[in-house]
Structure formats: C-alpha cells, structure tokens
Write a protein that binds this DNA or RNA. Structure first.
Ligand code: MN
Ligand code: MN
Ligand code: ZN
Ligand code: ZN
Lengths: 138, 138
DNA sequence: TTATAAATGCACTTCCGTTGCATTGTATTT
DNA sequence: AAATACAATGCAACGGAAGTGCATTTATAA
C-alpha cells in the first residue's frame, strides 16, 4: 500500500499541502464531487488552485471527470489500475434524481455497444439516472 | 402523412412563422444542432425566441435534448411515435471527435443496463464518441 | 372592433469554466 | 547559505451558454 505522497511522486506531481488535502477529500467522499463542493470544503483556498489541482490530477489519471447530465462537471478518484488515459474507463455512472448525487459504479462495466458500419467507437459515456440506494429505501 | 401545422396543432402549440421555420430547419438537418446553430441560421430572430421555441418543442416531445459531453446542449427532432415524455428515448447518440457533429442512432436501442440492488433506473444517457461514417471513410 | 392571452424582442443576470499575470513557495545549483 | 530557476498559488477578469423580467407586438376569441 503506497502513501498519497508516493502516488503523486510516481506520477511526477509535486507534493504540496493543498494537493494532499484535496486528494484526501476526494478519497473520503463516496460520491463524485463538483468544483463547488471542493470550494466549500476549503474556504481558504482559491477556486483557481482547486480547479488546477483537479485538472492536474485528471491529466495524470488520478481522477476522472464525469458528465452526469446536470451540466456541472464532477470528479471522482480513479481506481487503482485504471487506464483512463489509454482507453476509456468503462464503468458506468449513476445519478440520483432525488439527492442529486452521482456515484461511480466501478463494478458495472459498460457492455459492448454496436455502432453502424463506418462508425468507429473510441469512447463511451453511460449515465443511468434514477433513485439511488440511499434514497430508494430498498 | 400530417403537415407540420397539423403536428403542432395536435400538440396544442400555436402555429407561427418562427416555429414552422425552426421545425423545418431541424427536419432537414441530419445532425443534432445547438442553439447557436439555429441562431446562425436565423439572423433576424432573437436568441430568446429560438431558445423558447426549442423548449416548447421539447416539452411537447417534438424535439429531444442531447447531452453529448461537449458541454453544449444539442437538439434533434423526435421520431414519430417517440415516447420521450413517459419513458426515456432509448436510442443512443454518437459524437464524432473529428467533425464535432452528433447524430441520433435511432435504430440502435440502448441495451438493458444492470444496476446494483437498491438502485432504481429511470433514464439512461448513452453517448458513443469516436469517428463518424463521413469522417472515417469506411 | 375590442378584449385577452400568447409570442416575440431586448436587456440583463447568473453560473461555470477558463486564462493572464503577479506573487509566493520550493527545489536545485553554485 | 545565497542565488537561481521553476512550479504552485492567489487575484482578477473574461467568455460562453443558459435562463429571466418586462415591454411590445401579434394572433385568437369574444
Ligand atoms: Mn467513475
Ligand atoms: Mn436522439
Ligand atoms: Zn439519492
Ligand atoms: Zn465526423
């Protein structure tokens, strides 16, 4: 088990206080977060720093971006061994219409999707919307 | 075969010049269009009118909205017999990373997606990204 | 024709993402 | 240790797209 510091260093990302804090924040969250979420969690830090930190993480396959259809970009930590950079992360995402939260369903891979002749599939974004387990009470 | 006028009247939407023009514009386009696309096609008309027209169409299941991940909302005519309003339109969308166009693949329905226990699926958004038939040359 | 309501146009706002640039902090070299 | 070089952070501003309030025009109905 490697530390966060080791992870960052392995990706050639300098270890700073902010980056450690933001990483920990993402790690303890069970849901995808928006930039505003991070902003609210770190009042003292500037929006831009948070934005660039997340972007840095994204470029190094530490987090992946999620477009859940709300119009607001969300972020979540990549699983270890995730290959977002070379091929798309094929797990699906679930957006709850009730609590408005979005989660990675990393266990649920996206099935093979057929496209018409002449079309070349390179990436797939699949978002299921409905009611999450916390809200459904099932 | 019903006329556009008849279609609008059947949905209790008043027939206006703008609405007929915008409908025809959408009908002759083979790809999903942005509000800016419509704006460029109708210089004289105001953005707000176009915006509200499309929204009116959307509320009456004449067009459906497409979130292809570009961050810009796109619109396309619904097929006849489409049930966007009561259940989600289950066809998938394809976004070309080369020409940046998005098309409805109405023939390609979204397969059944399994979600974990406790989750209730109500709607699915599936966007395949890659190279379209025009750009691939295949 | 007049009264009523909807459609359109104009101005303005908000929200999110993004960038330029100055400043601070860190690491490396001399 | 001091000087240097470069990256990280903070502040301010911008831009695009979606959305809203209100006045005006246009269509429908009485
Ligand atoms: Mn995910
Ligand atoms: Mn479609
Ligand atoms: Zn929920
Ligand atoms: Zn193309």
């Amino acid at each position: 088990m490697q530390t966060i510091e080791q992870l960052l260093e392995s990706k050639n990302i300098r270890v700073t206080a902010m980056r450690l804090l933001i990483y920990k924040f993402l790690a303890e969250k069970q849901v995808a977060v928006t930039l505003s979420d991070i902003e609210n969690a770190f009042d003292k830090a500037d929006r831009t720093t948070l934005y660039r930190t997340v972007k840095t993480f994204e470029e190094s396959t530490i987090v992946h971006q999620i477009d859940d259809g709300t119009g607001i970009t969300k972020y979540a930590l990549c699983e270890k061994g995730c290959n977002c950079d070379i091929e798309t992360d094929l797990h699906l995402h679930f957006h709850c219409n009730n609590c408005n939260e979005t989660v990675c369903l990393t266990e649920h891979k996206i099935p093979q999707i057929k496209v018409p002749n002449g079309f070349i599939s390179e990436d797939i974004n699949l978002v299921v919307k409905g009611v999450c387990d916390k809200c459904s009470g099932l």
